[in-house]
Design a protein around this nucleic acid. Structure first.
Length: 275
DNA sequence: AGCCCATCCTGTCCGC
DNA sequence: TGCGGACAGGATGGGC
């Protein structure tokens, strides 16, 4: 479900409400979360009375860091949600964990319809190790120079797959990859190594401006995405290609947006003004 | 090396 | 209205 801008929004909301708070209890509600814990995982009971230092994000991963170097590593994948609820709000069969706090009425819930996501109880050292091994640089931190290097290094990949590869750059998913490529005027099937310097610079700038704008607008609410406080994002109103199959291109006003499966994901692009 | 495909799940939507 | 199939914001692993 969520990509970098949505995860950023969720994390920001959670951090402002929960940083510095002490946990009362962390409770797993369904067996599937327990089954997803790696062998090195801590038990949920180990989090009782721990204080949350902060909640932050790396790529699409969400990290809770606690005192005593304990942590939680969370990935929402397609349908995961992390939100604050009133205790009397009903729990459905898709709610897999809840966390309660001292001196706070509301509780945190982890809900995930398709069960692709995970919430793992790990030592911080373990979490840092995994983030390092699994994720490339942040798209809003990477400098042009390194961006160019990575384009060359993975030059045989198509731009779509290049953007979606979390080891190359972390945090971009299907919606933002299409919106970035549209803004850059590049076709998703172009090879990463085929860009001129001017094209690559435009691509880098497009990535930054799309993600910054999406964060400002608190992400894209398509179907039912809401942030930790139940607020919808607004960036879906600025989508130029995603979900617009057959519609007229907003930029050239001649092409019709095409939809095609590329690198395993449906991709939207304008065949006239992307090349 | 990198693409395609199936897979992990459940819900929704579309065409008949 | 019911039913079957396609599809969904993610990621991985096998086969080619």
């Amino acid at each position: 479900m969520p990509e970098l801008p949505e995860v950023e929004t969720i994390v920001h909301g959670l951090n402002s409400c929960l940083a510095g708070r002490r946990i009362k209890e962390l409770i797993f509600l369904s067996p599937h979360l327990k089954n997803k814990q790696p062998p090195s995982a801590l038990r949920p009971e180990a989090y009782r009375a721990l204080k949350i230092d902060k909640i932050w994000r790396r790529g699409k991963m969400i990290v809770f860091s606690f005192q005593d170097r304990r942590g939680l590593l969370i990935h929402l994948r397609m349908t995961g949600q992390l939100y604050l609820a009133e205790p009397n709000q009903p729990l459905d069969r898709h709610t897999h964990a809840r966390m309660t706090f001292l001196k706070l009425r509301r509780e945190l819930r982890f809900r995930d319809i398709r069960k692709f996501g995970f919430l793992c109880c790990l030592e911080m050292g373990e979490i840092e190790k995994r983030l390092k091994a699994e994720l490339g640089p942040e798209p809003l931190d990477i400098e042009l120079r390194e961006f160019l290097e990575r384009l060359k290094q993975h030059g045989k990949k198509r731009l779509k797959g290049w953007l979606l590869d979390q080891k190359i750059i972390a945090g971009i998913g299907n919606i933002y990859s299409d919106e970035i490529l549209f803004r850059a005027g590049l076709l998703p099937e172009r090879k990463a190594g085929s860009l001129s310097l001017a094209e690559a610079k435009k691509f880098w700038r497009a990535m930054r401006s799309i993600l910054k704008r999406a964060i400002e607008l608190k992400g894209s609410s398509i179907s039912d995405y809401v942030d930790s406080t139940g607020q919808r994002g607004e960036f879906q109103k600025q989508h130029r290609v995603y979900g617009r199959k057959g519609e007229l291109c907003f930029r050239c006003r001649r092409g019709r947006i095409e939809k095609k499966k590329i690198c395993g994901r449906s991709s939207f692009f304008c065949p006239v003004c992307q090349s």
